[in-house]
């Protein structure tokens, strides 16, 4: 039982991390960026590739390679996030596309990205490893935690902490929050909305790569996981209240825990059903989520 909870919290932490980015984008541009899941998975593939390169040709360690790959691929994919806004979404919005139109277009983008990943990296599953042999986990209050999980916890906690500081203690962070609350008013008082949106897309895509690479430590990567991931993100963000940062944290954790308990009681094949059951329940009972008025 305690073990299930621990596993749930660890997975939930990753969900929270990627949902924060999704909500950040949603509150800045007010539409569902569905391709976001595939962007994260693309980044995770990059991480995998860089780690492999460092390990096989440069003689670096697996963990060094992973952390290095994580950094590079987050930055590269962050740039990609900006390009997606600048050259794809923004012209569409300028064209007067409705929210439903935007969601359809971003779904198209999701399909394109997913298949590009398949073309470039192949359809076979890939796992990011941190050591060549499976290592013994640590015992902690009758639950065992693997080394991978510890790394996941550390990266998640540090990222959330740094992000919170950034959002609340820096000028750009304040501008991002202002645009999120009321973009027109923010523009009136002199916030450069467009620049803020660029930064938002960068940070969010950055976070999505961190989260997806961490997921790749626990389950293997497949080109089609972008869709599954974005659906999980949407569930988490609706539970917490779409657009809310605190909601993303709580929603992600709740989803991770619920999924793991669902798998524990009903069998792992029902894990996703539990997640979407939760979505349906929340949309019916509390469609505004936990943290939104």
């Amino acid at each position: 039982m305690f073990q299930v909870l621990v596993n749930g919290i660890i997975v939930g932490g990753i969900y929270a991390l990627i949902t924060i980015g999704f909500n950040l984008i949603y509150s800045a541009v007010r539409f569902y960026h569905l391709a976001y899941g595939a962007v994260g998975i693309l980044g995770a593939y990059l991480t995998y590739q860089i780690q492999k390169f460092i390990f096989e040709t440069q003689g670096g360690g697996l963990i060094t390679g992973f952390l290095f790959g994580l950094l590079i691929s987050s930055i590269v994919t962050g740039m990609l996030g900006i390009l997606i806004w600048k050259f794809l979404y923004r012209p569409l919005r300028k064209n007067g596309a409705s929210n439903v139109s935007m969601i359809v277009a971003s779904f198209g983008l999701l399909i394109i990205l997913q298949n590009l990943i398949g073309l470039i990296f192949g359809q076979s599953a890939k796992t990011i490893r941190l050591s060549e042999v499976t290592t013994q986990g640590y015992e902690f209050l009758s639950a065992s935690i693997t080394k991978n999980q510890i790394l996941i916890l550390i990266v998640t906690l540090v990222s959330v902490f740094v992000f919170e500081l950034f959002l609340h203690r820096t000028k750009i962070g304040t501008a991002i929050r202002a645009v999120g609350q009321n973009s027109q008013l923010a523009a009136v008082v002199g916030v450069k909305t467009e620049k803020v949106i660029y930064i938002t897309f960068f940070i969010a895509s950055f976070l999505s790569v961190l989260a997806s690479s961490l997921i790749a430590l626990e389950i293997s990567l497949k080109p089609t996981y972008g869709l599954m991931l974005i659906l999980k993100v949407i569930v988490a963000s609706i539970i917490g209240g779409i657009g809310s940062m605190r909601g993303a944290l709580v929603g992600g954790l709740m989803l991770g825990v619920a999924e793991n308990f669902g798998a524990y009681y009903f069998g792992s094949q029902w894990q996703d059903t539990v997640a979407f059951g939760l979505l349906v329940i929340f949309l019916l009972v509390r469609p505004q989520g936990l943290f939104k008025k």
Binding site: L92, A97, S101, A105, L109, I111, I112, N115, L116, L119
Partner: peptide, 23 residues
């Protein structure tokens, strides 16, 4: 071996392009 992926990419492009030019 590329057929499935390239088909789907074409669909994705159709969706996106439609939303842009002819919603």
């Amino acid at each position: 071996s590329f057929a499935a992926e390239s088909n789907q990419i074409v669909y994705g492009i159709i969706l996106f392009a439609l939303m842009y030019w002819r919603p």
